[in-house]
Design a protein around this nucleic acid. Structure first.
Lengths: 342, 342
DNA sequence: GACTGGCACTCACAAAGACCGAGTGCCAGC
DNA sequence: GCTGGCACTCGGTCTTTGTGAGTGCCAGTC
């Protein structure tokens, strides 16, 4: 049985009312608040159908209806239009993000901004090393057998590692190594570097090859293995809004999950190459068991059309999807512009 | 009226029982569980006195007694002995902290360890720049008018900033600037650098002085103003243990306070020069209004007898003070040893 | 004077019952 | 296909009652 237009209207109205009031919504209240031009009895029939189809359910007999995860999904996919941001929100975004002094600052400001605007928990992944490219590599001699390797990515992120050299190397040679490395790797995307690093060792003059090999090992670690994705989090206090009614009783598992970086990365960092797409995961669509009572809205961001990281918000399934989606998308776009300006 | 020994015993017993059971403790239960060799009626008299003196109170008539903040304070100061760690705990600490690859890793492991051992919220301040000294300063040319300034502190912490130069500077000159800066500032404690930076500009040859001035500005920001103390946090999920009974109802203000770095720094980072001292703030002794229902146990840490940062835990006033104090002290000591090994 | 046993009293909490009303499903009629 | 009417359900709220842990006080004992 397919749903006719009025039934869809009813579902939309139920979702909107429930999100707004956080209370099961009944047929009478629906006709009153939305100008559906039929009687409550008719709505009741429609509701019965929607319930059969699994879009809504009754917490108990003699209560109103509540959307199911499936209902929210239909709502998000078909029944809602992305809410344009208010001018006030736009201004808030701009005001918040201008004046960031460096990359870390941008990320911290962004995560707070997101939490504040959406009134949910916000998560922002620091620009991932693996998706950015090398701006510069620097070798800083610390002693005759130790060199500090500093890598600067085009996103502004900096990584440093200490390298033990097998034999002492005079400073001029260190400079030559540096030049060789920069010529080979400068401007390359990190994902593409491993074979180049390999070449690098082979092309090095014999006398310095051992040293270059040592550097290469660390380089590979830094560039690839140690992806070490950092994450910023804000707005956990928003979990307590609306009592503990959301989240079926306990905040515990959610707070625990939020402390696991791996979990967060899975949520917002998954491979989505297109930064203009905003993903929505509703309730049990979520793969992390303890977050089955939450919805996640996430997107990628980065300068131009590339993606260097993810960001998103997490909240109860009962959330304002159109508004939140709009906010997340807009913030991601602004941050992308800021990154592009460097 | 001064308290005789038995009254102190009674207070100690009340604190212990209440911490263990989280329920108001009555006179009868008290005589049964502790071998006080008197009758419940006697204990009741003692309790009445303790209540008059403000060490305990009754949630309501016909309920047992609960320690007040003042009662906990007396308990901590006079009535408890620091619990020695169990061998299992010692082993846990060692196992957790060996294998840390760099400074960030040490801090992250530490904060998790603390949260896990104490079952409270743990906070660790990253080694503060202002209390450490300069190991090396590096200038990396990014373009002809932009230089990346990288500072490496002796704690292993790295800070970087992008500097706009007023005029293009050829690379060899950048190297000379670098040398000059390093000679002047290398090995200096950060607190001592500001006057040196001043000298630096004056001693620079005229042609480069404008560039050096630009660098100096950023240097000062980096070294001093932007102390930007980073903080690691873990174990927020522990706030939900024991229901919401602790924290008089709402986690909200606590979660909010925990997101304010400034607040956290005030809590654990305050000026305590002696790393062997562990501070205990109980309930309303706390200066942050929203944390009046919590206790904070904190200490400084650092290599040897210097302090480069603070760490601590935060929990309900109803907490195991002797055990928690012991754990925090021990962890801080171990971390200090690890830092000293570099 | 310090401790104790006894006793009347208080009061939060739990269980049981009564009530209310929003909301439902169904059906006959338009 | 929609509507008004109606009997029914049942969670939530409010009241009542009972229970028991715990208290304060007092007279008596060591």
């Amino acid at each position: 049985m397919s749903l006719d237009d009025r039934k869809l209207d009813v579902l939309r109205a139920i979702v909107q009312d429930y999100v707004a009031t956080q209370e099961p919504v009944g047929s009478k209240a629906l006709v009153e608040r939305h100008h559906l031009r039929v009687s409550p009895a008719t709505i009741r029939n429609d509701m019965a159908v929607l319930e059969d189809e699994g879009y809504i359910r009754q917490p108990h007999t003699s209560a109103g209806r509540v959307p199911t995860d499936r209902g929210y999904r239909l709502f998000v996919d078909k029944l809602s239009r992305i809410k344009p941001l208010t001018p006030a929100e736009r201004r808030a975004i701009e005001r918040f993000l201008v004046g960031a002094v460096d990359l870390d600052d941008v990320v911290h400001r962004t995560v707070r901004l997101l939490a504040q605007l959406t009134r949910q928990v916000a998560v922002v992944q620091f620009p991932s090393l693996s998706r950015s490219s090398v701006r510069h590599l620097e070798l800083v001699p610390v002693s005759t057998t130790r060199v500090m390797l500093v890598m600067i990515a085009d996103t502004g992120r900096v990584e440093q590692r200490l390298v033990e050299l097998p034999t002492p190397i005079p400073e001029p040679d260190v400079l030559r190594l540096r030049t060789a490395i920069n010529e080979k790797l400068g401007g390359q995307r990190l994902v593409d570097t491993p074979p180049l690093v390999q070449d690098l060792v082979e092309e090095t003059e014999v006398g310095l090859r051992a040293a270059m090999a040592a550097l290469a090992t660390v380089l590979l670690e830094t560039l690839v293995e140690r992806t070490e994705e950092r994450i910023a989090l804000a707005g956990t206090a928003n979990l307590t809004r609306g009592g503990i009614l959301d989240f079926q009783g306990s905040l515990r598992p959610i707070l625990e999950a939020l402390e696991e970086e791996v979990v967060l990365l899975k949520l917002i960092g998954s491979a989505e190459p297109d930064p203009t797409v905003t993903r929505v995961l509703i309730g049990d669509e979520n793969e992390i068991e303890h977050l089955r009572a939450t919805s996640v809205i996430s997107t990628g961001y980065g300068p131009g059309s590339t993606v260097v990281g993810g960001m998103g918000v997490l909240g109860p399934t009962r959330m304002d999807y159109p508004g939140t989606i709009a906010t997340v998308s807009a913030v991601a776009r602004y941050v992308g512009e800021i990154l592009a300006q460097n």
